[in-house]
Design a protein around this nucleic acid. Structure first.
Length: 573
RNA sequence: GCGCCCGUAGCUCAGUGGAUAGAGCGCUUGCCUCCGGAGCAAGAAGUCGCGCGUUCGAAUCGCGCCGGGCGCGCCA
């Protein structure tokens, strides 16, 4: 919010050639130096004078209102001593007015967005590496919705391919022939083992691998019996995956099946467009190959992109072209896809091919992998930490804590709290790091409940709830006066006022990591306030009311910010 | 080899041109008759990978190295 708009307006009145964006306010390095500072660099550039001179002119030539008590020059900075209570009142009013929307810039109002994320192969229980995609995607979805976008969340179900063919064979050997409409007699949790075994066997046994290919070929021809087998297996896996992801609060609107895009008529137009550019050829072994150098690709690496095998079956990347066109047709405003960094070249190739045919590729958001201490995870090799195991352990640990802290609550209430705390620990641990950094997975640090963690922030909220319970009303009355005595109160105010800016930063970076960082800063600012400023035992009733309002404003801000991360606040924990 | 990403305290990470580079974990020392100790206060710990440049000013921008991750024609 423009907390300092009254000050900015006064300066703009004195210097009409300045733009509002030139006036950047920030906290002073130390409260003793001032309540907040204005940097003179941008205004100085605008007026073509030296920053220290600009600072002096602003201080001298602006007629400030009574909310400015004094100014002090410090080189290129103007430090302000202001009426803190005036701005505290302004901040609290604004937060209460906006409520659940405090922080939103409403930049998506009237717009639609389509986000594809997760899109795990339906072959086994998801591991925590895959979950990074889902959590990043889900948080971006929450951010876009907060900004007012009408968002549709898509999950691409890769229900084709050799891997699935092999899995079908392996499961049939285990439980008998898969028939149309019948549920396979195998639990979701057992599929990972079957998948690992199937891949191992395909490596060792050529005839088994060949059977996988021929099953895939029948699938692609549209053979109804084969389709039923594939669907039986992929549905089992997809349903299992959705349940695990739902535990993290991650949900989807649309499931798009790859098998629906096999013989898509739109693909013919693409090949025609490539032919017109002389960018596609059939190689000596009969494969249909795109030569991207004809489309402006300059490197030798990634120059060739195979669309179809010699036996006439299509590659994943071919079917994906049709799917992308399908998505783009549905949403013009903002079309995002969350991809692992290993897909960068692939996405570039897809983009070039589509552009050659007059289409566009979505805006890609990349993330680096979560790796184990001894290398990357691999579902195919069974070298994974399963998301469900990870969540179970997080829930077990938080339940232990809640048991000892909340004995007066019912078992159901305690369970609900324990789950929220576990989700907070897991989501926060993943989301707080910059997505393009590798994360080395470590059970202890990602399940920690103390320090820079989601539960630490929830704990601040629980303390606020506790104070407000004793204070006696949910939201303190908005009264005309506001009282503020300490630096801690003021610094908390400043921190809360930064939230809308942080949301815009996250939006432009397409990352919720700044939100996570912000939430920690805000919780720390609150904790300092909490220790230095008694609320219920405040010296005067006016101070007590003001501090209670600050508590409520903090809780609203934390609730909104944590919501973007998919973390719920709790009143008890 | 080529392309993209990363390199900041012992460890995990913030800090996308501005005041003395900040947190957490771990370590040392204190703090629960005091609104919740999942917490707080204090201390020790840094050639911001290395070098050269741009700038009044660089952890931040450019170039070159070094180290790590990912990718580079019939996997998805």
């Amino acid at each position: 919010m423009e907390l300092f708009a009254p000050i900015a307006d006064a300066i703009l009145k004195a210097f009409p050639s300045l733009e509002p964006a030139d006036l950047v306010f920030s906290p002073a390095p130390k409260p003793g130096m001032g309540d907040m500072a204005l940097r003179a660099f941008l205004p100085a550039k605008r007026l073509g004078i030296a920053p220290p001179d600009m600072a002096k002119r602003i201080a001298d030539e602006t007629s400030f209102g009574p909310e400015v008590k004094s100014t002090a020059l410090a080189g290129p900075y103007v430090n302000f001593h202001i009426d803190r209570a005036f701005f505290g009142r302004r901040l609290a009013d604004h937060v209460f007015d906006m409520g659940a929307y405090f922080g939103s810039g409403a930049t998506g109002a009237g717009k639609t967005a389509l986000v594809e994320h997760t899109s795990i192969n339906p072959n086994a229980s998801p591991h925590v590496g895959r979950a990074r995609n889902a959590m990043i995607g889900d948080s971006i979805v929450r951010l876009l919705r907060f900004e007012g976008y009408d968002v549709s969340v898509h999950y691409y179900v890769n229900d084709m391919g050799r891997q699935i063919g092999l899995l079908v064979l392996a499961i049939e050997e285990k439980v008998g022939v898969l028939a149309e409409g019948a549920e396979p007699d195998i639990r979701f949790e057992e599929v990972l083992d079957a998948y690992v075994q199937a891949n191992q066997r395909a490596e060792d046994d050529e005839s088994f691998a060949a059977k996988g290919y021929s099953l895939l070929a029948r699938m692609e021809e549209g053979d109804p019996e084969t389709r039923a087998k594939f669907h039986a297996v992929t549905n089992l896996c997809l349903n299992g995956q959705i349940l695990v992801l739902a535990r993290l609060g991650i949900n989807y609107d649309v499931f798009d099946r790859e098998s629906n895009f096999v013989r898509d008529p739109r693909l013919d137009a693409i090949v025609a467009a490539l032919q017109a550019r002389n960018a596609v050829f059939t190689d000596e072994e009969g494969r249909l190959v795109v030569d991207l150098s004809a489309l402006g690709h300059t490197q030798e690496e990634g120059r060739y992109f195979v669309l179809m095998r010699a036996n006439g079956s299509s590659m994943y990347g071919y079917r994906d072209l049709a799917y992308t066109i399908h998505k783009m047709e549905q949403c013009a405003d903002l079309n995002l896809i969350i991809l692992g960094e290993d897909h960068k070249l692939y996405a570039q190739q897809q983009s070039m091919i589509l552009e050659a045919a007059g289409h566009q590729y979505p805006e890609a958001v990349y993330y680096a992998y979560i790796v184990l201490k001894d290398g990357k995870m691999s579902t195919r090799q069974g070298k994974v930490v399963l998301l469900s195991d990870f969540l179970d352990e997080a829930a077990r640990r938080s339940a232990e804590k809640v048991e000892e802290q909340c004995r007066d609550l019912s078992p159901e209430e305690r369970r609900s709290i324990a789950i929220k705390v576990a989700v907070a620990a897991v989501r926060f641990a993943i989301l707080r790091v910059n997505p393009n950094k590798n994360v080395v997975f470590d059970w202890e640090s990602s399940l920690s409940f103390s320090g820079d963690t989601g539960p630490y922030v929830q704990y601040s909220c629980a303390r606020i709830a506790s104070i407000l319970r004793k204070y006696g009303m949910d939201v303190p009355p908005v009264s005309g006066s506001f009282t503020m005595e300490t630096d801690a109160e003021w610094l908390l105010c400043l921190k809360l006022s930064e939230f809308p800016t942080v949301v815009q930063t996250a939006l432009s970076q397409r990352s919720c990591a700044p939100i996570a960082q912000y939430v920690l800063d805000a919780a720390r600012a609150f904790t300092t306030f909490y220790h230095e400023c008694p609320v219920l035992d405040a010296a005067t009733p006016a101070l007590r009311d003001s501090r209670a309002q600050l508590c409520a404003a903090t809780r609203q801000t934390l609730r909104n910010a944590l919501g973007l991360l998919g973390i719920e606040i709790v009143d008890r924990m």
